[in-house]
Design a protein around this nucleic acid. Structure first.
Lengths: 218, 218
DNA sequence: AATAATTTTTAGTCTAGACTAAAAATTATT
DNA sequence: AATAATTTTTAGTCTAGACTAAAAATTATT
């Protein structure tokens, strides 16, 4: 059994691992968790004791298989709760994150199994991210950043990179959402912006935005 | 905003207050929370600082109006989550307590309002206890312990005193549940047991059990 | 290769919330 | 009313998890 604090570290390391592939630095973890590197060093030693991570001084940290499974389980809970909030409690996708941060720490296997069943075994959370199964397997869908599409390529919006309320509310305002068809009509070299057709509507999209929308090509 | 620990103290004091009416002793609180009186003294000073309780050394503790409202809010959350677990997630009434103990600490007014609405604004939790409204008002129904009924008195089972899984599972086994009609056919002076008819079925009930079932007389 | 800059760890503190043992206050008993 | 028993508080510790400042190690730069 892990404390909330330990769980937050495990989750942070997991998320950082999916980007960098090799040892995660204490600094990177500190930044993600808005804490200090010295606090991270302490915690990482503790997690190493508990066989959650492998840690060698000055070498950064990697999750063990046990650690990965633990992380997947926390993320499973987080994402299932997000689905619940949006589908059942009228939350919008930009409101769910901080509540799910709390709910993910609730300890009860029955609760989460029943919730999964109650929600109809959803495969994705409201931001398009896949929900790990009970064993911690996370179906990896292949998706591309909108920013990587060439002129005339088409696809469906399947996820977002930035999940901040600011970005999500921006998408709502632009009426951009999951499941919509997107076609790149043109790319503007001057500012790397995109002329796209989203759900039949033409619009210009900045490079920053294009770097935060995931597309499944078709 | 209160810590989980502070919330647990507030809740404990609230529950003890409904029994005793006057200053709650640190010892009583310690017993309820399975901690030591010295720890309680410390916490009670802190809660007094925060205007949640009135505390005079050696005089016990009483909740302020603010404290009562805070307590009612925690209990509201606890009981709404219990309804959710039973109605939506197939928990039985003896399984909900410890999960609700965790869920009651989740901080999100929207969450709890939406949950209330999603559940259809329930008035009672699965054990028959009333759910405080948003303002902290708790509709007090008048109910009597089965043990206080005279021969030939009748009523409906509306609640339980002991909410331990052991007792609740015992009631399940005896097929005794909320909403059922109960009639006292006879009282046995020898062991203070009761001969009752519950839902048409005659049975003998010990004094201990009769002291843990609430009846609304009719 | 030596030095400078950066990152990471160590050593020492702090706070919340628990604990034990002893002291102080209250309540019960003679 | 004095003493005994009980309850409550105080004083001092401990642990988890945070922090700062300094030391040590690593990495980058000349």
């Amino acid at each position: 059994m892990f404390s909330q604090s330990e769980e937050n570290y495990i989750k942070a390391i997991y998320h950082l691992s999916s980007v960098s592939e090799k040892g995660i630095s204490t600094n990177a973890i500190a930044k993600k968790l808005e804490t200090k590197a010295s606090s991270v060093t302490d915690m990482v030693k503790k997690l190493s004791e508990k066989e959650v991570v492998v840690y060698k001084k000055y070498q950064g940290v990697t999750l063990t298989d046990f650690g990965k499974k633990t992380a997947a389980n926390i993320i499973r809970k987080h994402r299932l709760w997000e689905v619940f909030l949006v589908e059942k409690l009228n939350f919008s996708w930009d409101e769910v994150h901080e509540v799910a941060e709390q709910l993910e720490h609730i300890k009860s296997p029955k609760l989460i199994d029943e919730l999964d069943s109650f929600l109809g075994y959803p495969k994705r959370d409201p931001h398009g991210d896949p929900i790990p199964d009970k064993e911690g397997n996370l179906p990896q869908i292949q998706k591309s950043l909108l920013a990587t599409l060439e002129k005339n390529e088409k696809g469906v919006c399947v996820g977002v990179n930035d999940t901040s309320s600011e970005f999500l509310r921006f998408l709502d305002k632009q009426e951009i959402g999951l499941g919509q068809n997107i076609e790149v009509l043109d790319r503007e070299p001057f500012d790397d912006s995109f002329l796209v057709k989203i759900n039949g509507k033409e619009m210009t999209i900045s490079n920053k935005v294009a770097n935060n929308i995931y597309i499944q090509k078709n």
